[in-house]
């Protein structure tokens, strides 16, 4: 079968100790049996490692942070599109999703396809709305308090036992064993990510995750569960293994059916000793460990591109359990010219 030539723009090339999903997404696309992709790397910083990896991207463009305004970001994307003709755009950062979701139609009118959750799907799974989400979709979630001020720290001991997880609305989480530690975490998080700061009941157990893809009609196109085997001090998986856990898969399928989730997602769950599952977070995009799913038999980025292009995709049911990924760090030696080009011209 002849592969379809296609231009795909991907963000998240920051393969650091807190890696973005861009590089694994590109690797997955390059292994596609359906597409022969031309890869446009979109970067925010001039030191994102994906810029310097040989044979990864065909072209690289620097784009402005969404915080500078959606319009500026969109105009830059449209400018790149005029030159490169982007068929599909895969955003990989939580912070940029809002801008792209809001402008999905505008992008499509120009010929740029995306496959993203709806704004409603995106917003209702916000961390500070998790208890309502759990109730609405019949899934266990830890209890939580949205703290708008430090005065609310005293409420914690009335509702939960210590320790508790203290989390930012978008990012960061600290385990706190007493009110003093909650205060410290509150200050750190609120200064960086704003309010509310969320105090979440600590569920003891094993952290397990699922990478999944919903077609927006309630069907689960792909789902692979994984257990983190090696976790960095930022809580990121540095090694993991696929599991054959039917209960987790059923939970995922149910959630996708009820929410009609559209796009890639990562469910973060805690499995207790009593084999109960608590949903602690939903990431509304493909996670950085997605290449494990590809290795286990489900090429999720390829399926996402097909869905974005409105092609038929049959649900993938099989994958190999016991497949592992182990990350590593690697020093690339880079000529100054490349750094100069991206810094000065904002493109390579």
């Amino acid at each position: 079968m002849q592969k379809m030539k296609i231009t795909i723009a991907v963000t998240g090339l920051n393969n650091t100790d807190n890696p973005g999903p861009g590089v694994p997404v590109i690797r997955s696309l390059k292994e596609s049996s359906a597409f022969e992709p031309i890869i446009i790397g979109l970067v925010y910083e001039n030191l994102e490692p994906g810029i310097y990896m040989e044979d990864l991207c065909d072209k690289i463009f620097q784009i402005p942070y969404p915080s500078t305004g959606s319009e500026e970001l969109l105009e830059r994307i449209e400018d790149i599109h005029q030159r490169e003709k982007i068929d599909v755009l895969i955003p990989n950062f939580d912070a940029e999703l809002f801008s792209f979701m809001k402008n999905e139609k505008r992008l499509l009118e120009k010929g740029i396809h995306t496959f993203l959750p709806t704004l409603k799907q995106f917003q209702e799974r916000d961390k500070d709305r998790l208890p309502d989400y759990g109730k609405k979709y019949g899934i266990k979630v830890p209890g939580s308090i949205n703290m708008g001020s430090m005065n609310q720290i005293s409420e914690i001991k009335e509702k939960f036992d210590y320790p508790v997880m203290v989390k930012g609305k978008f990012y960061d989480a600290y385990l706190a064993y007493n009110p003093e530690q909650v205060k410290q975490a509150f200050n750190k998080i609120s200064s960086k990510w704003g309010l509310p700061v969320i105090a979440q009941e600590f569920i003891k157990g094993t952290e397990v995750n699922v990478v999944a893809l919903g077609d927006g009609q309630g069907n689960t196109i792909a789902a692979v569960p994984m257990r983190k085997q090696y976790i960095t001090d930022k809580g990121k998986a540095w090694g993991g293994i696929t599991l054959s856990d039917e209960k987790m898969l059923n939970l995922t399928r149910q959630l996708i059916r009820k929410t009609k989730w559209k796009g890639g997602m990562e469910l973060e769950m805690i499995k207790t000793m009593q084999n109960e599952y608590y949903l602690i977070e939903i990431n509304p995009r493909i996670p950085a460990w997605v290449y494990l799913a590809v290795g286990a038999g489900q090429n999720i980025p390829e399926a996402l591109v097909k869905l974005a292009l409105e092609q038929e995709v049959a649900p993938m049911e099989d994958y190999e359990s016991g497949k592992m990924f182990v990350r590593y760090s690697y020093d690339m030696i880079v000529d100054l010219e490349k750094f100069e080009k991206i810094s000065m011209n904002r493109e390579i």
């Binding site: 094993t206 994984m226 257990r227 856990d245 359990s321 016991g322």
Partner: peptide, 13 residues
């Protein structure tokens, strides 16, 4: 269960 005594539980990892 492998022949050299390595046991893997694919449900729990």
């Amino acid at each position: 269960i492998s022949d050299n005594g390595f046991v893997f539980n694919s449900r729990t990892g």
